[in-house]
Computed example of a mutant assay.
Amino acid sequence: MKAAVLKAFGEPLSVRQVPDPALGTGEVVVDVVAAGVLPYMAEVLSGERQYLLTLPATPGAGAVGRVRSVGPDTTRLTVGDWVLCDPTVRSRDGAPTPDITLQGLSARGDGGLRLQQHFGRGSFAEQLLVPTENVFPLGSIDPAEAPRWAALNVCLVPYGGLLAADLKAGETVLVNGATGYFGSAGVAVALAMGAGRVVAAGRNRDRLAQLAHRFGSRLRTVSLTGDEDEDRDRMRRAHDPIDVVLDLLPPAAGTAPVRAAAMTVRESGRVVLMGGVGMLGGDDLALPYPWFMRNSITVRGQWMYPPHANTRLIELARSGLLDLDQFEVTEFDLDNAGQAVAHATARAPFSLTVIRP
């Protein structure tokens, strides 16, 4: 099969013939139809993100495709089924904290790197070997719409944060970093889950205006200034009370806007941290102990999402509550994987770049 291969950080991707995946028990081989390209994939491939990725590697996190073959312990999936492939691969040996590799992207610790030795090839390829538990049926879909269904891999990240916050219908969510790739998807997912109001905070005024136009009266926008006290006041004035804060700020944002947003939440509110702040160095997040204690605030970190999030998000999309037509898709063939990575960089919200092998 053909795959895009990264031989060394900083080198361009090369598309070449590689061995087909060898199917084993507890595994599924999927013919990749659409693989989404992260907007920061260029930073991963250059080494700037310092992700744990064993080289040579085939990048690509998540995909939509059709089942090519199944292992002997598979009882429901059949050849030809349309499926969503979840790149969050977890070890199966019963550890309280399983080792994790993000297929085609990164790993958590030495155990995650061991998983990468078997499940390391990502979705920028004609075929993808996936653990059976990471393959989720989509039902019947229009083949021409397969790239749009790849938006589920984007939406799963903020969905994991909102599940961790135990978001309830009618509550108000503040999405910090709402003008970014995952933040804008988080706005859409929160509204699909029944949030009564979403406060979208970010520094890009044009993108905030686009969000306001897209989502109407259930959205309030806040343009951040960089002054922590001023930004906190602006967010509080946008809507009171705020029940949940979901932080999705990127590594370059710094800790001040995170703290400003976290301290807008109401008494007994919930704050979920799942952005990239601090991952490339800089100050640690300092939170005022007395304020959080006296206001009974729950602060939780969340990396990715639980396995059941896949099925539930697919149901939100199939019901129409989460409208995947919001995503504008640009397609590249596998031979132009490098161009796809360049195109994806710093795309506007709801702009999805996909590779179609």
Rank of each mutant, 00 (worst) to 15 (best):
A4W: 01
L6K: 03
A8M: 04
E11Q: 15
P12W: 09
V15P: 11
V15E: 10
D20N: 12
D20V: 02
P21V: 08
P21C: 07
A22S: 13
L23M: 04
E27Q: 15
V33Y: 04
V33T: 07
P39N: 13
Y40E: 14
M41S: 14
A42E: 13
E43Q: 13
E43T: 04
S46K: 00
L52M: 11
L53Y: 01
P56T: 08
T58M: 10
G60H: 01
G60C: 13
A63W: 09
V64Q: 05
G65A: 14
R68L: 07
V70Q: 07
G71Q: 02
G71D: 12
P72A: 01
D73V: 07
T74A: 14
L77K: 08
D81K: 05
D81T: 07
W82H: 14
L84N: 11
D86H: 11
T88Y: 02
V89M: 07
V89W: 01
P96V: 13
T97Y: 12
L102I: 15
R108W: 10
G120Q: 13
R121S: 06
R121M: 06
G122E: 14
A125T: 05
A125S: 09
Q127K: 09
Q127N: 07
L128G: 11
L129E: 09
T132L: 14
V135A: 11
P137V: 06
S140W: 02
S140G: 12
P147H: 09
P147R: 12
W149V: 10
C155M: 07
L156V: 05
G160Y: 04
A164R: 15
A165P: 14
E171D: 14
G177W: 00
T179K: 01
Y181H: 03
G186V: 01
A188F: 02
V189H: 00
L191I: 01
A201D: 05
G202V: 01
G202T: 03
D206R: 13
L208G: 14
A212H: 09
H213L: 15
G216L: 11
R218M: 06
L219S: 12
R220I: 01
D227A: 02
E228F: 01
D229T: 12
D229C: 01
E230I: 00
D233N: 03
D233A: 15
R234Y: 00
M235F: 02
R236W: 00
A238T: 02
A238E: 05
D240R: 00
D240P: 00
P241R: 04
D243N: 12
V245T: 12
P250Q: 06
A252D: 12
A252C: 03
T255C: 06
V258W: 01
A261L: 10
A261I: 05
A262D: 06
T264A: 00
T264W: 00
G276L: 11
P288R: 08
Y289K: 06
I297F: 02
T298S: 13
M304Y: 14
Y305M: 07
P306M: 03
H308L: 12
A309K: 06
A309G: 12
N310G: 15
N310S: 14
T311Y: 05
R312S: 13
R312H: 11
L313H: 02
A317D: 13
L324G: 01
Q326C: 05
E331R: 15
F332Q: 07
D333G: 15
D333H: 11
D335C: 04
G338K: 04
G338C: 12
Q339C: 06
T345V: 15
R347D: 04
P349Y: 00
F350Y: 03
I355Q: 11
